[in-house]
Design a protein around this nucleic acid. Structure first.
Lengths: 207, 207, 207, 207
DNA sequence: TATGAATGAGTATTCATTCAT
DNA sequence: AATGAATGAATACTCATTCAT
């Protein structure tokens, strides 16, 4: 507000980044809580502490914000997976890493409910789908790779088509996230780990 | 009042039932296509070939219509399950019946995408949740019973908590239904049958 | 309901009269409670225990019902006034009669609130005003006559224009009736009697 | 922010004030003409030359607008009364001031018909009544004070309860305002003055 | 960059009235 | 005479977006 600010804490650019970040975070929370359609720009702007105009200085439209959120979301998931792939040297280590991942993700259900919103919107907006599809595909491929590696490290033959398995796991995650009867976050992580264990144990050994 | 109405195709009662049915069907299609929030009463009434007022002669509110759809949906699923439970005498027969069910259900994905809408709405509207929760619970219990029977008939010990397994299968179904990239209906049935086969084969035998 | 009713309690005509009467009474109560615009035909019909259709078998429109109510209302007031004029032979008797009238009319405020609704509607609907104006004028003239008589019997000169005084008393009645803060019926009757007493005492005696 | 805006006729703030004022004025006229219930937001916005949305940028609801009008109305009346109380030093002066007030107020009837709408709405909406009641009470108290002063200045004993008299005068004003047969504004002012004169003359002198 | 008043199209819902039964 | 499903126009209010400031 002061006009003289010789050593401004925030450069103009940083300040804008902050605005963007706050808007994105506010939007994410509201979308999870009320859905994309149920959330108004007014609400988002107000929750972030800005005016509606500030929104349009940072995003060209409501859908553009959702797209940005999609990118964040996918990049978050990717980072998680890549982390698992890179750090785990052997079967035991990998399984432990997966266990840790599974128990540490209370957020997973929230993320997944957002994922459902994203998917629903992709099903309905062709334009959005165009951006959504490749990211989704890339993520699925990454997950498939991880699964193949996991079976392998456990000395088991991985299923012919890990891609389908990956798709199933994602579906399961999303589907479970929907199940938040009154209370909060269903145990998505443990369920997935338990399923994986069973599948691995049922798979034929690498001869 | 007379039961013979020689020159009238539809009695008044029948005519109203027809209106209701058309509105319900139109709404179902639109909800699947555009979501609950994305579908307007205008659209529903127009798609059914009536005025908006006609809607309110048949349903007290938009949410009441969704609730009606929910009842239909649940009753449809129940009927399917009960049918499987009743007609299948032994493991082979049951498995065949399930196979048939799995391949014959192109509709399943459509129903499921509606199910997702219902669940999302239940998560957000406490009033709706009140009606939704018990139906959902009943359906899950039924599915759990079927699963226990299935393992048993196959000479295997069923998992301690078939309820959780049932929940997982429903989640998988719903999650997969979301995955309709541009095209149509993902192969939900086969995926479920395949998963079940694996789980049964991995289970320890009885005695 | 029985098809054979040799000595039917109600002839068809009587039955219709009953329907009319019930609709009128229900409407009157609702108009007082919620106003003309705030009351729907559905509500009226339901309150009377009939369908909306029954309404239109008895009245051509909502406004026609209001007009009927107006007639009832005016005729009620007229009867009251005529009664006072006819039964009271001398000043004391007349004053007592007026006192009785004033204390016995808890309903007056309700009637008056309806009167306000009628007037408001007359101000806004030319068609309605056409029926309203002459009745109102007749009633005012009657009241003026009563007032003149009252002053006379008390041995006082009545004001030059009793018509204006009558108008004022009606206005006062209506205005007071509006004043029903939370609770119920304001003391309209006593206020009017008290005002009348003052006016009479202030008037010059008949020489 | 600068106070000099050479090439802009209206600052933003002023422009909004203008919008508000136009909406208020349009609403006032329409409410008087058609009543609160009979006036739609569409009509108000159109009459003021704005969109319906503009209405909601300035008022949170239709009722809030009515409340604003109520405040204006009450403050208008208060100012009038306070003016009379302050400027008039003796009986003659006060009476003259009241005469002037009475003859100069063609608007009074319009205001009063709005007052009737306000009262009716207060009778029916508890929430509105909460805001209405205290203003009304304050106004009545002010009027009562004026009346007491008036009697006093005229060397007369004022009635025990000037509050009731004030209530009656307000009722008379409101009631008369309703009486606008086809034409316009009834002579509310003169009627009140004439009544006051009579009451004062009938009152006993101060010892 | 950020503001927020204003827009115009849209929302669910209500209502007086009609009409086939 | 009475029913109540259906109509079509209206209602208060919301929303993503625009634009002058």
């Amino acid at each position: 507000m002061a006009k003289i600010a010789p050593r401004t804490r925030l450069t103009r650019e940083d300040s804008q980044k902050l605005t963007r970040a706050r808007l994105l975070e506010a939007a994410r929370e509201l979308f999870i809580d009320r859905g994309y359609g149920g959330t108004s720009l007014r609400d988002i702007a107000a929750a972030a502490g800005y005016s509606q105009g500030a929104f349009y200085s940072n995003f060209p439209s409501k859908e553009a914000l959702l797209l940005e959120l999609l990118k964040e979301h996918m990049s978050f998931k990717m980072t998680q997976l890549r982390g698992l792939l890179d750090t785990a040297a052997n079967a035991a280590e990998l399984m432990t890493a997966i266990d840790d991942w599974a128990s540490g993700i209370n957020d997973l259900a929230d993320w997944s409910i957002l994922a459902v919103e994203l998917r629903l919107h992709a099903n309905r907006s062709a334009e959005f789908a165009e951006a959504y599809a490749p990211m989704e595909a890339a993520h699925r491929a990454d997950l498939a790779k991880l699964l193949a590696l996991l079976f392998e490290r456990c000395g088991k033959q991985h299923p012919d088509n890990c891609d389908v398995l990956a798709e199933g796991l994602i579906a399961l995650t999303d589907g479970m996230a929907l199940n938040r009867e009154g209370g909060r976050a269903p145990p998505v992580g443990p369920a997935i780990v338990s399923l994986l264990r069973t599948l691995i144990s049922a798979a034929p050994s690498t001869n």
